[in-house]
């Protein structure tokens, strides 16, 4: 099924997607409609254009491939599924996601992967081809964030306050430079090459965007992880 989104509201689009018997749906001419594919499962969306905020919020197993840039709050509270963005993504991408994977060819804005958490067998992942803005992975409680810094000459690949409040999961930065203002409870390790789970994510990212994994996986990475599962218990005293 093919939909030209021109003139349709997001609500109408979602109703059309929901009612369609086709597994695979192409939507073209998207121009700012928000909430496309909210809580969707069991479908594949191919989108051309510029969807608005909250693309694939609460996504529950569907696959979304976007040929264009994503705005804010893509994959908010995503439970399962896959979002592939041939372009850049805005702020708060993958907020509180607890399953599924997001692959971004270019950069992401601020607050990507905040509150990301692992849950039983689910371990969410975000792979960012370019660079991430500030507050990457704040309050992260699980899952994996990879920033490849593709095409960057050097310097940190994530902005300020990366991992503040982090108490689980891992952030892998393909860079030798640590982001500025890293909080105390985040420990950093320099690692040459990546473990198999991260390698698998990078390979998937490469397959989607026509890149060679060998150009990334053997490089030096900075691994960020919390120093404790309860880094804040020392902060309090019972009264």
């Amino acid at each position: 099924m093919k939909i030209n989104a021109n003139g349709y509201t997001a609500k109408k689009l979602n109703i059309m997607i929901g009612r369609s018997n086709d597994e695979s749906i192409e939507i073209e001419g998207v121009i700012g409609q928000r909430y496309i594919g909210t809580a969707l499962s069991g479908k594949i969306l191919e989108i051309e254009g510029a969807p608005g905020n909250a693309l694939g919020a609460f996504l529950d197993g569907a696959k979304i491939e976007l040929f264009g840039n994503a705005q804010e709050a893509t994959g908010d509270t995503m439970n399962a599924g896959e979002i592939v963005i041939h372009g850049n993504a805005g702020d708060a991408t993958g907020y509180a996601m607890r399953g599924g994977e997001i692959f971004i060819e270019g950069d992401v804005g601020y607050r990507c992967g905040i509150h990301m958490k692992a849950y039983r067998g689910n371990s969410p992942a975000i792979v960012i081809g370019g660079k991430a803005g500030s507050f990457l992975g704040e309050y992260q409680a699980g899952g994996t964030i990879v920033v490849l810094g593709d095409g960057r000459a050097g310097g940190a690949v994530a902005g300020y306050f990366c991992g503040t409040g982090m108490h689980g999961g891992e952030i892998w930065l393909r860079s030798q430079d640590a982001p500025a203002a890293l909080p105390e409870q985040v420990k950093t390790e320099r690692v040459k090459g990546v473990p198999s789970n991260v390698e698998m994510l990078i390979k998937k990212w490469c397959a989607k965007f026509g890149k060679e994994a060998i150009n990334y996986t053997g490089d030096e990475f900075l691994k960020l992880s919390p120093d404790d599962a309860n880094p804040y218990k020392r902060l309090y005293t019972p009264n």
Binding site: H115, K117, A118, Y119, A141, G168, P231
Partner: peptide
């Protein structure tokens, strides 16, 4: 995950 604190900070960061 089990064994880690459940932190939900003041602001919704979105």
């Amino acid at each position: 995950p089990e064994g880690s604190d459940a932190i939900s900070p003041a602001p919704h960061h979105d």
